[in-house]
Design a protein around this nucleic acid. Structure first.
Length: 490
RNA sequence: GGCCCCAUGGUCAAGAGGUUAAGACACAGCCCUUUCAAGGCUGCAACGGGGGUUCGAGUCCCCCUGGGGUCACCA
């Protein structure tokens, strides 16, 4: 009987949900859920200098929004609590001491200054710096004395000097490195807290994590972790290293360069489902050609086997397309809810029925934030260039536009029950009576009542939303302006 | 620079020795049409290079090139 799959999302609380991190969380969640396993949240806050207020909430919120419910974590507890490394402070040292006992680690009293000097020297000689094991051969007495004197110390892992270390990664295969390239990395820092390198091994073991899923940037340090597992005699987890998500130019996404975080994308008008769907497919592909997946569908079809090895570029255009797909899949009511905040902000005219506007916008919106730029004409009619009445394909000119508006005015005035159907029927009847093309009537009207060359919706829908009075008022303005312009050219 | 990893259209990607080398985004064109969308159809476009192995290589091996990662008392 196989062990139950347990994966963990172990972010460092920096207050910034990197898109690559989010995808790691997603894959960890999916690996667990696709195999009826557990998804655990663990906070890796062993670097007290990087503490950011409220950062943990960003993590909770993100998981919550995305629907990735963790089975164990700081907020909900679990059989392996606590799930915050700073709260597990005291669990690591004994393990480090055990390693010293076994000869796999040692005390190091070297000062930061000494190390910096060493590093600088190496740099000057163009060599790769590696700790010189200065403290490896300290005698028992020397060590005890230094400890008694409360000299600050770290504990370092003692790497084998010869041979190679090999580990298996389920996506990258077998990876072997020369032990001589492995540095005696620090396990316990001088503040008593473990480094990530140590804490992740201890906690993953203690928490029974079966699949260690993380970005491929950890690939090169994995041999060191393996050596740790071996030193303790612990079972080595399944390693799942994920290819990086990069920018279109191939460079990596970074907070410092102002690259969009998950929160930023939401603010930019992207839907959670679209983001999740898109990043699920950045580095993994299903067995079919299906592209639209809900989280629960992913939970069923996700597999480690189809994770790719090469880095993938984050393509905003494709995300945008996914977003548009999700927007179109909403019901008119759902879309209205989503659009409302943007509509309220941009349409100040209280006469306007925002639901009707949202229906116009539904298939014309790819990202929520583009809504305001599309509806300004509902507020007021601005001055517009009369040349927009002239449209070759519509076969409209200034003259026939004026004529159409003049013909339309009394017809529209005569409509008692102002709605799309009545406007449509009256106008189409007029077109037939005049023997002109639809566009020759509807283009000038739309132009006159919006003043915009391009609008969501056509003359009829917009006239309906604007209301009878405002529509007539705008048409009269159009007539007046066209008459004036034509008179001037004669 | 050392070490590790990666390499199919501009992008995401199928492909697990024999295919006309899928599909999607983007782009272009056409249809529909009262503008713009949406929708439908069509098109453009790829195995980085060189050696092997094999009857046969995008698929396996080697070299080169290119890209990325990593070399902290950060994670």
């Amino acid at each position: 009987m196989e062990r139950q799959v347990r994966t963990r999302f172990a972010p460092s609380p920096t207050g910034y949900m990197h898109i690559g991190n989010l995808r790691t969380a997603l894959y960890e969640y999916l690996i667990a859920k696709s195999q009826n396993g557990k998804f655990i949240l663990r906070i890796e806050d062993t670097d007290q200098e990087r503490y950011v207020e409220g950062a943990v909430d960003v993590i909770y919120n993100t998981l919550e929004l995305c629907g990735m419910k963790h089975d164990e974590g700081p907020d909900i507890g679990g059989p392996y609590a606590p799930y915050v490394q700073s709260q597990r402070k005291d669990t690591y040292l004994p393990y480090a001491l055990e390693l010293i006992e076994k000869g796999h680690a040692y005390y190091c009293f070297c000062s930061k200054e000494r190390l910096d000097a060493l590093r600088a020297e190496c740099e000057k000689k163009n060599q790769t710096f590696m700790y010189d094991r200065h403290c490896l051969n300290l005698s028992k007495e020397e060590i005890e004395e230094k400890l008694r004197n409360k000299e600050p110390y770290v504990i370092r892992q003692k790497m084998p000097r010869e041979g190679t270390t090999t580990f298996e990664d389920v996506v990258y295969g077998t990876i072997t490195v020369d032990n001589s390239t492995l540095e005696d990395q620090i396990l316990i820092k001088s503040d008593g807290l473990p480094t990530y390198n140590f804490a992740n091994v201890i906690d993953d073991h203690l928490m029974n994590i079966t699949h260690v899923v993380r970005g491929s940037e950890y690939l090169t340090s994995t041999p060191k972790y393996n050596l740790l597992y071996e030193a303790f005699g612990w079972e080595i987890p399944v390693y799942v290293h994920l290819p990086l998500i990069v920018k279109p130019d191939g460079s990596k996404i970074s907070k410092r360069k102002g690259d969009a975080s998950f929160e930023d994308l939401l603010q930019m008008g992207y839907l959670v489902e679209a983001i999740i769907n898109y990043i699920a497919l950045l580095g993994w592909s299903p067995d079919t050609n299906q592209e639209i997946f809900t989280l629960s569908e992913l939970e069923k079809v996700f597999n480690i086997k189809n994770i790719s090895k090469s880095p993938s570029a984050f393509d905003m255009d494709k995300l945008r397309w996914f977003n548009a797909q999700y927007i179109r899949a909403k019901t008119p009511e759902e879309f209205y809810e989503l659009a409302l905040p943007y509509l309220k902000k941009s349409i100040t005219n209280k006469e306007i029925d925002l639901f009707k506007v949202s229906r116009l916008l539904h298939t014309r919106t790819e990202v929520l934030t583009e809504i305001p730029s599309k509806v300004g004409f509902f507020n007021e009619l601005c001055d517009y260039d009369l040349n927009i009445y002239v449209h070759k394909k519509m076969k409209t000119t200034l003259e026939n536009s004026l004529n159409s508006l003049k013909e339309a005015l009394p017809v529209l005035e005569g409509i008692q029950d102002w709605n799309e159907t009545s406007i449509h029927d009256s106008l189409i009847a007029l077109v037939e009576r005049l023997g002109i093309k639809n566009g020759q009537m509807l283009w000038p009207i739309r132009t006159a009542i919006t003043g915009w060359e391009v609008t969501p919706g056509g003359a009829i829908e917009i006239a309906d939303i604007l209301g009878k009075n405002e529509t007539l008022r705008r048409i009269r303005i159009g007539i007046e302006r066209l008459e004036k312009a034509l008179a001037a050219t004669e």
